[in-house]
């Protein structure tokens, strides 16, 4: 049984966790994918997506897993590899119109994200820490240099309001464009 890892929020702790997981599980995943005709690039993509899902579900989501972390990561990777093979064989059930709509939405989201990253990086980092990494407001206040949990909370809502306003403005522009 492997030891239970603590919640790791600072990037330096995450780096150590990812190195540890890479060394334990990546060779197993590579062996599996190589035996099935896959290449190193595919193994890398599959494993990195598995690490992301592991982080969201187990580290941040605090979901208890029945197996150890290596077995869990290998299991997700096998599933993702199967999905990749199915996709490459062209058995995707979505029609061309659905795919085009998804692509359009993705494109406008990426543009919006790029804008928010440049115009409000500090806000995005703070909101990410709270909503994605699930730090509590005391940790957010410490990490982002606020005197109290209360002032960090006020700032969090200000940031959220700014992003909401940007979303609204941009949506109006897209509507004007489409009209």
């Amino acid at each position: 049984m492997e030891t239970k890892r603590p919640l790791c929020s600072p990037p330096s702790e995450r780096e150590q966790l990812f190195i540890h997981l890479y060394k334990k599980a990546f060779p197993v995943v590579c062996k599996y994918i190589s035996k099935r005709g896959g290449n190193m690039e595919q193994a890398k993509d599959v494993f990195q997506e598995a690490l992301l899902l592991y982080y969201e579900k187990v580290v941040v989501g605090r979901t208890e897993i029945a197996s150890n972390e290596t077995a869990y990561l290998v299991g997700i990777s096998k599933h993702l590899w199967f999905q990749l093979c199915t996709k490459e064989k062209g058995t995707c059930e979505l029609g061309h119109h659905d795919l085009a709509a998804i692509e359009d939405e993705k494109l406008s989201d990426n543009k919006l994200l790029a804008l928010l990253e440049t115009s409000g990086k500090k806000c995005m980092d703070m909101l990410k820490a709270f909503y994605y990494d699930k730090l509590n407001m005391v940790q957010v206040a410490e990490n982002f240099g606020y005197n109290s949990e209360r002032s960090a909370t006020v700032q969090k809502y200000k940031c959220l309001e700014n992003i909401r306003n940007t979303v609204n403005q941009k949506q109006l522009q897209y509507e004007d464009f489409l009209a």
């Binding site: 995450r14 780096e15 890479y22 060394k23 989201d109 994200l113 990410k128 909503y131 994605y132 959220l160």
Partner: peptide
């Protein structure tokens, strides 16, 4: 509706940053 979209963008941002961290670990290894 705009606020709902804001949460979805924050999640995308979080995922993007995490993907960058993982890619750095890969490069290091």
């Amino acid at each position: 509706m705009a606020q709902q979209k804001a949460y979805s963008l924050i999640r995308s941002y979080g995922r993007k940053k995490l993907q960058e961290e993982i890619a750095l670990v890969h490069a290091q290894l």
